[in-house]
Simulated scan of single mutants.
Amino acid sequence: MFEPNHSSHNDTNNTNNSNHTDLPLEILAFTVGDEEYGIDIQKVQELRSYNSVTRIANAAEHMKGVVNLRGVIVPMIDMRIKLNLGTPTYNDFTVVIVLNLAGNTVGIVVDNVSDVVTLSLNQIKPAPSFDTSVNANYILGLGTIDERMLILVNVEEMISAAEINIDHRLAA
């Protein structure tokens, strides 16, 4: 998604000497706690205000429950809890980002959504290295816009297949 090095692509037939990696990336920026994150806008299905959910017994704490979105059961994951960023508060700014991940629909609850930003590849810096006690496999890099920094995340890495497929377990 954000990887600038696609050297396996042979671009000899392109007369303007550029390739698809030169294209800017559109990122949805949102906040969780005091940090600003960014995800590929192409993964976003819609934005919704936060409403009550149906809790699932014995679900992980960050799994807020499910909602019925036009006939589709959508699991809701609270990112503040999932990322261990403190106790969530729900207010008029709380937003659910409904994502389409490999044909599955999942909602992530975030503190607010700020905007859609366009990043060129030279605005994306590599993710820092962490010791093995920190699971940061979902961090793709850091997007920089002037003094602003977005933690760019791969939502497929951040959210497990089990969390995405909760609707299939409920139907069984």
Rank of each mutant, 00 (worst) to 15 (best):
D78L: 00
S52Q: 11
N13I: 05
V44L: 05
E157I: 06
G38A: 04
E36D: 03
N58C: 04
E147L: 00
I108P: 01
S49C: 08
V98C: 01
T132K: 14
I81N: 00
Y37Q: 02
V106D: 02
V66C: 11
I81R: 04
R48A: 13
V32F: 05
K82R: 13
E61N: 15
N112F: 11
N58L: 14
T144G: 02
V44M: 06
S7F: 12
H6G: 04
E46K: 15
S133Y: 05
D22M: 08
E36K: 09
I81F: 01
V95C: 14
S114V: 15
L69E: 01
L85W: 00
L150K: 07
T31S: 14
L101C: 09
E163F: 04
V153C: 15
V113D: 03
L28T: 14
E156P: 03
A162R: 11
G141M: 10
D34A: 11
N16L: 12
V117S: 08
T15K: 04
E156M: 09
V155C: 09
K43P: 00
N13R: 06
M149D: 02
L47C: 08
N137H: 12
S129V: 14
I124C: 03
M1E: 14
F130R: 02
V134E: 10
T87H: 03
V53A: 07
G107K: 02
M1I: 08
I81G: 00
N84P: 01
V44S: 05
V32E: 04
F30C: 10
D167R: 07
V53Q: 13
D92V: 09
V110T: 05
M149L: 10
N165F: 02
L140H: 09
I108K: 00
M1F: 06
T144I: 13
M76R: 00
A59I: 12
P24Q: 11
T105F: 03
S133P: 01
A172P: 01
H62S: 13
L23Q: 14
D11C: 05
N17Q: 09
A29K: 06
H20Q: 12
V72H: 13
T31A: 12
G33E: 06
R148L: 05
N5V: 07
V44Y: 07
A60R: 15
L152W: 12
I27N: 09
